[in-house]
């Protein structure tokens, strides 16, 4: 039996809005644990546009997604948020004592007064390549990540893609697999030039195959892959393989949160505009994931929502305490929490 982590608030999503929620909650002495599917903070800012400038953050005429993330991390550091990366929230239930239990796909349990969903566009998940019938092979012959290299020992492996994941696994699995064929739609790669050079060198030595083209069909039975059809510039070829690793980037999906019984509006979570509370009292949704009349998917709107949500969470966590509104500029107690006093 896993020992649950006891905390005040579980925040799902470590994008800019989830991070800023730590700050607002922290001012009211509420401790946070954050869960995110990515391996680092920043959400879309880190994953989709780390280098791209954002122009509508108040007081920042121009700031990149990564710089915004870095600044927020600096701002919330005094509150020691605990991060749980590479995790997806799997289970959720209300406990008899009024608190909530949240479970990750790795089996960790969290108990908290409130749950704040700040999941943006949803959790990043591997994109399924547009190959008809691929679903039938997923989990048995087709994998979107490598959990154990042994899974590929002595297999005829087809790796599809042109980024670092595809190239790295081509290089790393070559000694393990019986054969490796890399398929990419063009001879240029997004991956690090060093890996690309190594791949071409291995190909020269006859250790791997490389085909230019797109996978258009799969052959096999009962989830056991036997061959893939590759459409290239010179027509179609069939390649025998019994394992496939497609690396087609990430897409965002609401995921298991959709099954919590929350009221949804076209895959967005309906909230009120006073507390940003969902249809389950004690569960809040802020940032791009929520919907209310007039909603704008702006980072600054998410920041505002985080501040108002905090007032409601404070009342849930400490119903006996009087809520005193204070400014960070003048309150010595807030400044103490921020470590500037």
């Amino acid at each position: 039996m896993t020992t649950p982590i006891e905390t005040d608030v579980v925040i799902i999503g470590a994008g800019p809005v989830g991070l800023f929620a730590v700050f607002e909650l922290g001012l009211y002495d509420l401790k946070c644990h954050l869960i995110d599917i990515l391996d680092r903070p920043g959400g879309q800012c880190a994953e989709l546009y780390p280098e791209k400038p954002i122009y509508d953050i108040p007081a920042w005429p121009e700031i990149s997604g990564q710089a915004l993330t870095d600044r927020l991390m600096e701002q919330i550091a005094p509150f020691s948020p605990q991060f749980h990366f590479n995790r997806m929230v799997a289970g959720f239930r209300k406990l008899d004592n009024g608190r909530f239990e949240v479970e990750t796909d790795e089996g960790e349990l969290f108990h908290a007064h409130a749950v704040v969903i700040a999941a943006g566009g949803g959790s990043f998940q591997p994109k399924r390549p547009p190959v008809p019938g691929i679903e039938a092979y997923e989990g048995s012959s087709v994998f979107y990540s490598v959990r154990r290299m042994e899974e590929f020992r002595d297999k005829d492996l087809l790796i599809v893609g042109g980024g670092d994941s595809a190239l790295d696994w081509t290089l790393n699995l070559q000694p393990v697999a019986k054969s490796v064929t890399l398929v990419h739609r063009r001879p240029d790669f997004r991956a690090a030039p060093d890996s690309v050079n190594k791949m071409f060198a291995m190909r020269e030595e006859g250790k791997i195959n490389f085909e230019v083209g797109q996978v258009t069909g799969l052959k096999g039975a009962n989830g056991q892959l036997e061959a893939a059809t590759i459409k290239g510039p010179d027509g179609e070829v069939e390649i025998a393989c019994n394992r496939m690793l497609p690396f087609f980037g990430l897409t965002m999906k609401l995921g298991p949160i959709a099954d919590w019984g929350l009221n949804l509006n076209e895959n967005l979570i309906t909230v009120d505009t006073e507390k940003f509370e969902t249809s389950i009292p004690g569960v809040f949704a802020i940032g791009d994931i929520n919907w209310y009349p007039g909603k704008l998917k702006l980072i600054l709107s998410g920041f505002h929502e985080a501040a108002l949500m905090t007032q409601a969470v404070k009342r849930i966590a400490h119903p006996d305490q009087k809520l005193v509104f204070q400014y960070t500029t003048s309150s010595t107690s807030l400044q103490k929490k921020l470590g500037v006093q």
Binding site: K127, P130, G161, G162, G163, H184, R185, R186, D188, R190, Q214, F248, G249
Partner: peptide
């Protein structure tokens, strides 16, 4: 541009 060409790797029926 090269960056767009990179993103096209993720598209369908390129």
């Amino acid at each position: 541009e090269p960056m767009e060409e990179d993103m096209l790797d993720f598209a369908f029926d390129v």
